[in-house]
Amino acid sequence: IDVRFTVNGLDVTVRVRTEEIAERVKELAKNGVDWREIQRIAEELNK
């Protein structure tokens, strides 16, 4: 599942395995978490 969001004007796409992880990623993006941090968290959750 590809999750797309915009952080500080940057369009970011993170690929995740499940809808649940996708929701977590969207939540982080909404809360203004840095995209590199979101990427790292997504990689952890995908394991």
Rank of each mutant, 00 (worst) to 15 (best):
K30H: 10
I1N: 03
R4G: 06
L45V: 02
W35P: 10
A29S: 06
I41V: 08
D34S: 14
G9S: 04
F5K: 00
V14S: 00
K47H: 14
V25A: 01
V33F: 09
V16M: 02
T6R: 13
R4K: 14
E27C: 07
N46E: 04
R4M: 13
N46R: 02
I21A: 06
R24T: 13
E43F: 09
I38C: 02
A42P: 00
V33Q: 05
G9I: 01
V25P: 00
R17H: 10
T6L: 09
E19Q: 15
D2R: 09
V7N: 05
E43V: 08
R4L: 09
I38L: 08
N46H: 03
A22E: 05
N8T: 04
I21M: 05
W35N: 03
L45G: 03
D11T: 15
K47G: 11
A29Y: 15
E27P: 01
D34G: 10
R36Q: 14
F5D: 01
G32M: 08
R36T: 14
R15G: 04
G32T: 04
F5A: 02
I1M: 08
E20G: 09
W35I: 15
N31A: 15
V33E: 05
L45N: 02
V16L: 03
V14T: 03
K30P: 01
E20I: 08
T18Q: 02
E20M: 10
K30N: 11
Q39C: 12
I41C: 05
W35C: 04
I21G: 03
G9V: 01
D2I: 14
G9Q: 04
A42Y: 04
R36D: 13
L10M: 14
E20A: 14
W35S: 06
F5Q: 01
K30A: 14
E37V: 12
D34E: 11
E20T: 08
L10C: 06
L28V: 02
A42G: 02
T6V: 13
K26L: 15
R36V: 14
I41K: 04
V16K: 00
E27H: 09
I38M: 03
V33D: 03
N8A: 09
F5Y: 04
V3L: 13
E37S: 08
E43K: 08
E23H: 12
A42Q: 01
T18W: 02
I38N: 00
L10F: 14
R17C: 06
D34L: 10
V25G: 00
T13L: 10
L10S: 09
I38W: 03
T6A: 07
V12N: 02
D2T: 13
R40A: 10
Q39G: 06
K26S: 07
V25F: 02
N8R: 06
T13Y: 12
E23F: 12
T6I: 12
E37H: 06
V7G: 04
R40V: 08
T18F: 03
L45R: 02
I1E: 03
E37W: 08
K26R: 15
V3E: 01
K26I: 14
E23D: 11
G32K: 07
V12S: 02
D11F: 13
Q39F: 14
A29T: 04
V12M: 10
R15V: 10
F5R: 01
E19V: 14
N31Q: 15
L10P: 01
V12Q: 05
K26T: 08
L10G: 05
A29K: 05
R4I: 14
R24C: 11
I1W: 14
K26M: 14
I1Q: 05
E37I: 13
K26Q: 09
E43C: 11
A22L: 05
R4Y: 11
D11H: 14
V12Y: 15
R15Y: 11
V14N: 00
N46C: 03
V25Y: 00
E44N: 07
I41E: 05
R17T: 08
N46P: 02
V3N: 01
Q39N: 07
F5S: 01
L28S: 02
E44F: 10
N31W: 10
L28D: 01
N8L: 07
D34R: 08
R40D: 05
R17P: 05
K30R: 14
V33T: 10
R4C: 12
V33N: 05
N46A: 04
L28Q: 02
R17W: 13
W35A: 08
R36S: 12
E44D: 09
V12T: 04
E20H: 08
I1H: 07
R36F: 12
L45F: 06
T6N: 12
V16Y: 01
D11G: 07
E44S: 07
V16P: 00
T18Y: 03
R4W: 12
R40G: 05
I38P: 00
I38R: 00
D34W: 08
D11W: 15
R4F: 12
E23Q: 14
A42E: 01
R24I: 15
N31G: 07
V14Q: 02
E27S: 10
T13E: 06
N31M: 15
E43G: 06
E27N: 09
V7T: 06
L45C: 03
K47T: 11
